[in-house]
Design a protein around this nucleic acid. Structure first.
Length: 615
RNA sequence: GGGACGGUAGUUAAGUCGGUUAUAACGCCGGCCUGUCACGCCGGAGGCCGCGGGUUCGAGUCCCGUCCGUCCCGCCA
C-alpha cells in the first residue's frame, strides 16, 4: 500500500479524463462502483466524488495484477496506475469519461468492503430508514455528493456576499439562558443543582445586543435548535444565515437580502435572476392579501388558482339559501363576528374547464382536505347559463347568490367551483393545501422542485398580534419586540387585532426561506405592546431581563432577518426533503439512526447532574 | 397531542378467505466466459414475517398493546 499512498499520488479524479488525455500515465484512487469479470478481461467502474472512470485489467498482462482485478468487489477501495486509452468504437456515451478507459499497469486494493447494504446509485431503492442507518453509504450516492457540494458553494457565496457588504461575522453562544415563549427549547443540565442551560433556538437576543454594542452590521451562519415536532422541511437542529443591521428601515434589509439571493443563484446555479427581476428587487405582497388569495403567508405564485373569499357575499345574501351557510351569515349580522377579523369564512377555488375534474377526483380531494380536519368539500360544476350541477347546494341556493358567486369567481361554462367554510384557520389551511395539491395534480407545478421557475416575493405587513387561547386575549404573533406601523400604535390598546407590523418573510415557490423584522427600540411603545398581551412591567422584566436592560442603554433603531439555509439549499438542489441536504440528519421523531442518539446515560452521570428519571 | 400509511431474506417488494414446504427480483457465494458498461450463462446459500400479548386445532395473515419509519393537522419561523 505504501507504494501507492506514499510514492504514487493521485494524478486525476475519476471524473476528468477525456480523449485528449489518451496515452497519459495516470494514477486514480476511488471505490469500485461495479466490476464486470468477462473471464479474460475485467472491467471496473472506479468512482470518486467527481465521477466514474472505467479501468481495465487484461489477462494477457501481469498475472498477479490480473488476480487483483478478479478479486475486486463492490465498494472496495482501489488504487490504480495505468495508461489512458482511446475506447474508439467501444466508447460509452452515458458517462462523461466514456471515450477513454485506463488500462491497469499496477494496482492495489487499499481496503476491502462488506457488500453494500444497498446499491450506491442515484435511483433510490432503499427506504429512508436503511439509508439513514448507513448514512456513510447513502452519502456516497452521486446525488447527495452533489447536494453537499452545492451546499458548500452556498456557504461560500453567502459569506463573500455579506463580507463585501460590510457585515461582520460574530459567533454567539449555543448554551444560553432559558427564556420562555416561542419554540420549545432543548435543555442542557448543568452540575449546579436544578439549573439548566438551553440550546439557543436562534441568536435573536444576542444579535440585538450586538447592535446595542455598536456592531452595526452582523451576520453569522449558525446552527439553531428547536425541540418541536419535525417535518420533511424541519430538523431539530438547522442552519440559518442570520443577520442584523442598525440604522435601517425595512427597505434597507430587503436590499441586502436581494443582493444575497441574486449572488447565491448566480454562483451556485449560474442563474441570473435579473432577467426575471430586472430592477434587482422582489415583489411585495401584503400579508392580508396573501391570506385572502392563497390562504397562507407563503404563497406559491408559479400558478394561479387563487382563492375567492365569499364571506362578505354570504353575509349579504344571508347564506344564499344554503342551510350550512345561514348560521355563519347570522353571526356576522348579530355582531358576533366582525368582518375585519372574521372567525369563520367562506372560500372557493375555481378550477377552469381546461382542467376537468371527475367526480372521483373531487372525492379524492375531499378526502385530502378531510385529513386536515375539514368537514367536507363543497362543489359545483357550472352548466350553461350558470346553473350548478353535480352539487348538493344546487337545490338550495338562491338564484341571486348563485349568480353573485359565479361572478365573484369568474366562473365560465364547464368550470368547477370547490368550496369550504368554517373556522378561519381551518379553512385557510385546508384551502391553501388544496390549492397546492390542485397545482400538482393539474400539472401546473412539478411535484418536486422548481420546474426552472423561481418565484420570489416578500410577504409584508402582517398583524403584530394574534388571538390567544383565552377568549378575547392576544399574544404576539412573532415576538413582542417587533416594531408596529406608526399609524397603528394608537390601536395597540384599543384594537390589537388590527395592528400591523414591520415583519417580513421572503418566500420562494411556496417555501418561506427567510423571515425577520424591524425591532422595537422605543420603550414607550414596548410597554404598550406588553400591556396588550397582558404582560406587566414586572413580568416583562422577569422574562426578558437582559434584553430589556440592554435595549435601555442606547439601542439604535435596528432590524434583521434570518434565512433558513437548509431550505435554501433544498430549493437550490431541487431536493424533496431537508434530509437530502444535511449530511447527518435526524428522523421525523428526532432520532439519529446512525449513532442511536438520543440514548440513555448511566446513573453516575445522571447523579452528577442531580437528575433522576421519573419513569 | 391527533390522524393516515408502512415494517416479510443483505436490499426492495408479493403473499388470496387464517391452512400445513413463505415467493420473486436485485445483491451475495461457487463455476464458466477477452469488450463489458444494469454484462451474460449454470449452480447454491440465505428468514426472530419489528417486538409483546391474545383469539384459534392452526396466525406473516384476525384483535389489543408497543417500538420504529414516512406524511398531514396541531406545534414550530
Amino acid at each position: 500500500m505504501a507504494r501507492f499512498i506514499d510514492e504514487l499520488k493521485r494524478t486525476h479524479s475519476c471524473g476528468e479524463l477525456r480523449l485528449d488525455d489518451a496515452g497519459a500515465d495516470v494514477v486514480l484512487m476511488g471505490w469500485v462502483a461495479r466490476a464486470r469479470d468477462r473471464g479474460g478481461v475485467v472491467f471496473v467502474d472506479l468512482r470518486d466524488r467527481a465521477g466514474i472512470t472505467q479501468v481495465v485489467f487484461d489477462k494477457q498482462g501481469d498475472e498477479a495484477l490480473f488476480a487483483v482485478g478478479q478479486e475486486l468487489r463492490s465498494e472496495y477501495v482501489l488504487a490504480v496506475r495505468g495508461t489512458v486509452r482511446d475506447r474508439g468504437d467501444m466508447k460509452n456515451d452515458k458517462i462523461p469519461t466514456g471515450a477513454i478507459e485506463v488500462l491497469a499497469a499496477e494496482a492495489t486494493i487499499l481496503n476491502v468492503a462488506k457488500p453494500p447494504v444497498f446499491p450506491i446509485q442515484d435511483e433510490v431503492n432503499a427506504t429512508e430508514e436503511t439509508r439513514l442507518a448507513h448514512r456513510y453509504l447513502d452519502l456516497r450516492r452521486p446525488v447527495l455528493q452533489k447536494n453537499l457540494q452545492m451546499r458548500a458553494q452556498a456557504y461560500h457565496a453567502a459569506r463573500n456576499a455579506l463580507h463585501e457588504q460590510g457585515f461582520l461575522e460574530v459567533e454567539t453562544p449555543f448554551l444560553v439562558k432559558y427564556t420562555p415563549g416561542g419554540a420549545r427549547n432543548f435543555l442542557v443540565p448543568s452540575r449546579a443543582s436544578g439549573k439548566f442551560y438551553s440550546l439557543a433556538e436562534s441568536p435573536q437576543l444576542f444579535k440585538q445586543l450586538l447592535m446595542v454594542a455598536g456592531f452595526d452590521r452582523y451576520f453569522q451562519i449558525v446552527r439553531c435548535f428547536r425541540d418541536e415536532d419535525l417535518r420533511g422541511d424541519r430538523q431539530p437542529e438547522f442552519t440559518q444565515i442570520d443577520l442584523e443591521m442598525s440604522f435601517v428601515a425595512q427597505d434597507d434589509v430587503f436590499a441586502v437580502c436581494e443582493k444575497l439571493v441574486f449572488r447565491l443563484w448566480k454562483e451556485v446555479l449560474g442563474v441570473d435572476l435579473s432577467e426575471k427581476y430586472p430592477d434587482g428587487t422582489f415583489p411585495r405582497l401584503p400579508f392580508a392579501e396573501s391570506m385572502r388569495d392563497y390562504g397562507n403567508d407563503k404563497p406559491d405564485r408559479r400558478f394561479e388558482l387563487r382563492h375567492v373569499d365569499l364571506t362578505a357575499l354570504t353575509v349579504a345574501h344571508d347564506g344564499g339559501g344554503i342551510g350550512l351557510l345561514a348560521p355563519i351569515a347570522a353571526k356576522f349580522r348579530d355582531g358576533t363576528y366582525r368582518e375585519e377579523l372574521p372567525e369563520e369564512i367562506v372560500k372557493a377555488i375555481r378550477v377552469p374547464a381546461a382542467h376537468p375534474l371527475s367526480r372521483k377526483q373531487i372525492d379524492e380531494l375531499e378526502g385530502f382536505v378531510k385529513q386536515m380536519g375539514a368537514a367536507g368539500l363543497g362543489r359545483a360544476k357550472i352548466d350553461a347559463g350558470g346553473a350548478w350541477a353535480q352539487s348538493p347546494f344546487a337545490k338550495q341556493v338562491t338564484d341571486g347568490f348563485r349568480a353573485a358567486v359565479n361572478e365573484a369567481c369568474g366562473a365560465q361554462d364547464g368550470d368547477v367551483l370547490l368550496f369550504m367554510f368554517g373556522g378561519e384557520q381551518l379553512v385557510h389551511t385546508a384551502m391553501a393545501n388544496l390549492r397546492l395539491e390542485l397545482g400538482k395534480r393539474l400539472g401546473l407545478i412539478p411535484k418536486v422542485g422548481s420546474g426552472g421557475e423561481w418565484e420570489l416575493l416578500w410577504v409584508v405587513d402582517p398583524p403584530l398580534f394574534e388571538r390567544g387561547e383565552a377568549p378575547g386575549s392576544w399574544v404576539a404573533a412573532h415576538h413582542p419586540f417587533t416594531r408596529p406601523h406608526d399609524a397603528c400604535i394608537e390601536h395597540i390598546a384599543t384594537d390589537p387585532g388590527t395592528v400591523l407590523c414591520h415583519r417580513y418573510d421572503l418566500v420562494l415557490n411556496g417555501v418561506e426561506i427567510a423571515g425577520g423584522s424591524i425591532r422595537l427600540h422605543d420603550s414607550e411603545v414596548q410597554r404598550k405592546v406588553f400591556s396588550a398581551i397582558g404582560l406587566s412591567e414586572e413580568d416583562a422584566k422577569e422574562k426578558f431581563s437582559f434584553l430589556l436592560e440592554g435595549l435601555s442603554h442606547g439601542a439604535p433603531p435596528h432590524g434583521g432577518i434570518a434565512f433558513g439555509f437548509d431550505r435554501l439549499v433544498m430549493l437550490l438542489t431541487e431536493s424533496e426533503s431537508l434530509r437530502d441536504v444535511v449530511a447527518f440528519p435526524k428522523t421525523a421523531r428526532g432520532n439519529d439512526l446512525l449513532t442511536g442518539a438520543p440514548g440513555p446515560v448511566d446513573e453516575r452521570q445522571l447523579s452528577e447532574l442531580k437528575i433522576r428519571s421519573i419513569d
